[in-house]
Design a protein around this nucleic acid. Structure first.
Length: 778
DNA sequence: GTCATGGCAACATCA
DNA sequence: TTGCCATGAC
């Protein structure tokens, strides 16, 4: 059998057509689990095997790094690592950055421009609003940031917006937009939305650039097309070219192939429009549409549930997903009293499944709506000793110490980066306080120079204390010293240098605060991350350079990764290494938000927190459009499951401190009752307590036999009860989060009674207000 | 200028 | 519950 035949083997009719289609634009409407990644990767392989396309001519765009990594892996399996490396398989943002690094100088940006994430851009907006003397109550910087993000997604620049601004709000917004953009440009920085918008501008303003990339990418594929926003749509259109455009005459349009499913559109909040997929045939004349309706992933039970839910959305094109897998096992339902109980149920169930040996932890995933919900699961997983991995959530790169060091690195890569510069100005403390910073800012504004330049001219800043002037001088001297150490050093060496010379590390190691110990560990890990990056990066570059000599001067001897490369990786690939490692023995259970779950599949899925107010989220309840997006999110969640699906909810859930009583999610009601086997159909606590506390709802956990099930969360409501346990020194207690401990000290009386409890070497001693702490006397 | 304290608001979802 | 900011003592 030829390799071409092998590529087509086992494909169903529509899949076969999608893989072999040539010529005009192609839309593949791929229902959940219909094998779209298979089609995409086989199409790529087919292009090369049957049609002589070179890997360098292919651009495959995905939405997440996870998806990009998976696709690269599969291509690598089909075609070998070299072919995979010389193809562009990446997210919109990464692809745009790569183009921008080469071309942004045309628009006055340095090629090593800094990428601001949401936190950085929020900070910059804060500075802008302060500069404009705006009342933060009337004009919240956050809302400005969000609105500007939306405008950029629609490719509306500040001048255009200023023209149509009517209200005072809009006028101020237009002004802030303009100033924000100016500050970004001066700082040599772009925010996430700029990455797309500026690339589009570039392609529009410089036809030769558009031509260059159109010549290079003769085949463009876009995954998750239903999640593209307007800016991304225009980017694709510009890149591919359309027959009717005059400037495409030189190079004929490239072959475009997009894949998507309107039912899985879950990113409207960041500007995605289903319009792009619905109007594809109008946008791209001569387009062909192929439907993939056979599902290979799930049992019919799971599909029926998902179909029943998604059918509630109005005005969607009908789709007929079907499976040959048979009914399978009924969906398991569980109503917990509270979120601890829910987590205990999930963990207990996983424990049983893995005990039989029928399931390994890596085959199991737990989904929730918001990241905040992961904490309880984490607690219980730790306590039960079950291995797990949280995808997303409180990210490594969002920790204070990491961001501080990152800010140093960014300033070294780009000295004009104001946001980062101001972050490190007085970190660690060096006597440049708010007062001095303000004087510098004022001076910079008056002289119309950047903050970085103002620093260099401290002597001229009026009303500056001599002490501050000296402190600033020392600071700039430090920066110069660090900068001198950059050439010839690898990213990890630079990180180590920064840690040492700034005194950041020694400040932490000398500190007595226990938190600072883990900060030091995180920084050590950060150095490892840098080293790891150097290793993988060099390997990748060498491969690529070997394969495409014509593309730029990226020869092998230049394969050393630069600081800019490293920073870019961190900004764009925040979830590196977060994909569960399927190769590891048994592996770990994966915990993630529903949004992260898109595109993945697991034999066993727990869909948790199915409560109105949690999922669907509180803020969507009043808005039909948003509610429909939540329903699509539910559809995505349900269709991730292959064989076993669990749905659960908690009757009571504490939301920042106080308990909230949520009714069952409407999505739960939309699943046909005949498909669900309710393991526990009702909570002990049905609704908000009238006058009585719900402390009476205590039971043992009933799972795993450990007795640490953590079902005592309802003690959080004891504000209305009086039953605080009376403790004395030496008592053995059980704490919801910390487990078993012994009372060391009791002081105070009545409501103010405090206890000090020792939880053993791992956790140490903790102080509690007995009345409020989730403690039980044993 | 730095540190400690207390009030107040935030938890969407991602690159 | 956490994290940010304003406030006030040193």
């Amino acid at each position: 059998m030829s390799s071409q035949e092998q590529l087509l083997e086992g494909l169903n009719g529509p899949q076969h057509e999608a893989v072999t289609h040539g010529g005009g634009p192609l839309l593949i409407v791929a229902g959940a689990g219909s094998g779209k990644t298979r089609v995409l990767t086989h199409r790529i392989a087919y292009l090369m095997a049957a049609r002589g396309v070179r890997p360098g001519e292919i651009l495959a765009i995905t939405f997440t790094n996870k998806a990009a990594a998976e696709m690269r892996e599969r291509i690598s399996a089909l075609l070998g690592a070299r072919a995979a490396a010389s193809m562009w398989t990446m997210t919109f943002h990464s692809a745009c950055v790569r183009i921008l690094r080469r071309e942004a100088h045309r628009l006055g940006y340095p090629s090593g421009f800094t990428i601001y994430d949401s936190a950085d851009s929020a900070r910059l907006m804060q500075l802008v609003c302060k500069e404009m003397d705006l009342d933060p109550k009337r004009f919240p910087p956050k809302s400005f940031s969000a609105q500007i993000s939306n405008l950029k997604n629609e490719l509306v620049d500040y001048d255009t917006f200023a023209e149509q601004a009517q209200t005072e709000q809009e006028k101020k917004l237009a002004e802030a937009y303009k100033l924000y953009q100016r500050r970004l440009h001066e700082a040599g920085a772009m925010d996430f939305d700029d990455l797309i918008m500026v690339t589009v501008n570039l392609l529009q303003m410089f036809p030769d650039v558009a031509e260059h990339y159109r010549r290079r990418f003769r085949h463009v594929m876009v995954d998750e097309y239903q999640d593209t926003n307007h800016a991304q749509y225009v980017f694709i259109r510009r890149l591919v070219g359309v027959e009717s455009d005059p400037d495409t005459a030189v190079v004929p349009p490239s072959e475009l192939c997009v894949v998507g499913d309107a039912d899985q559109s879950i990113y409207a909040f960041r500007g995605a429009t289903i319009r792009n997929i619905l109007e594809f045939e109008r946008d791209f004349p001569n387009a062909r549409t192929i439907l993939l309706e056979q599902n290979y992933r799930s049992t019919q039970t799971i599909l029926s549930a998902a179909n029943a839910v998604i059918e509630r959305n109005e005005g969607r094109p009908a789709k007929n997903l079907w499976s040959e897998q048979g009914q399978g096992t009924p969906i398991v339902g569980y109503v917990a009293d509270n979120e601890h109980d829910e987590a205990a149920f999930v963990v207990g169930e996983i424990d049983q499944l893995t005990d039989d040996g029928s399931i390994t932890p890596s085959q199991v995933a737990v989904f929730y709506r918001t990241n905040a919900q992961s904490r309880v699961f984490e607690d219980v997983f730790i306590r039960m000793g079950l291995p797990y991995k949280i995808v997303g959530g409180v990210r490594f790169y969002e920790r204070k110490e990491i961001r501080d060091i990152l800010a140093y690195l960014r300033v070294l890569a780009n000295p004009e980066d104001t946001v980062s510069l101001r972050r490190i100005l007085n970190v660690p403390k060096r006597g440049i306080g708010a007062r001095a910073e303000e004087s510098l800012e004022l001076f910079a504004a008056r002289e119309r120079i950047t903050f970085a330049r103002a620093l260099r001219r401290v002597d001229e800043v009026p009303a500056m204390a001599t002490r501050s002037v000296n402190a600033v001088r020392n600071f700039t001297a430090l920066l110069d010293e660090l900068a001198a150490g950059v050439p010839g050093s690898t990213p990890s060496q630079i990180v180590e240098m920064v840690l040492a010379k700034t005194g950041y590390l020694s400040e932490l190691t000398e500190s007595k605060d226990i938190q600072d110990e883990s900060r030091v560990e995180n920084l050590e890990e950060f150095v490892d991350v840098a080293r790891e990056f150097e290793n993988t990066f060099s390997a990748l570059l060498e491969d690529e350079a070997a394969l495409e000599g014509e593309e730029g001067p990226g020869t092998v001897e230049e394969a050393e990764p630069t600081l800019v490369d490293f920073l870019e990786r961190i900004s764009l690939v925040a979830d590196t290494d977060q994909l569960p490692d399927a190769d590891a023995e048994g592996g770990v259970v994966t915990l993630m938000t529903l949004h992260s779950a898109k595109g993945l599949e697991f034999p066993v899925v727990f869909l948790t927190g199915l409560e109105d107010g949690v999922f669907p989220h509180m803020r969507t309840l009043g808005d039909k459009t948003q509610l429909e997006e939540e329903r699509r999110l539910a559809y995505v969640g349900l269709t991730r499951a292959e064989r076993l699906l669990y749905v659960s909810r908690a009757a009571v859930r504490s939301a920042w401190g106080s308990p909230s009583y949520n009714p069952a999610s409407r999505f739960l009601d939309e699943i046909p009752p005949s498909l669900v086997d309710w393991r526990r159909g009702e909570a002990t606590v049905l609704s908000a307590p009238p006058g009585r506390g719900i402390g009476g709802a205590r039971r043992g956990s009933g799972f795993g036999g450990e007795g640490f099930g953590g079902t005592f969360g309802s003690r959080k409501t004891t504000a209305r009860t009086t039953e605080a346990p009376s403790l004395s020194v030496g008592d053995l207690v059980n704490h919801d989060s910390f487990g078993m401990g012994r009372v060391q000290l009791v002081e105070g009386s009545g409501d103010k009674t405090k206890a000090r409890v020792d939880f053993g070497a791992d956790i140490g001693e903790k102080d509690f207000l007995v009345k409020y702490a989730p403690i039980e006397k044993l």
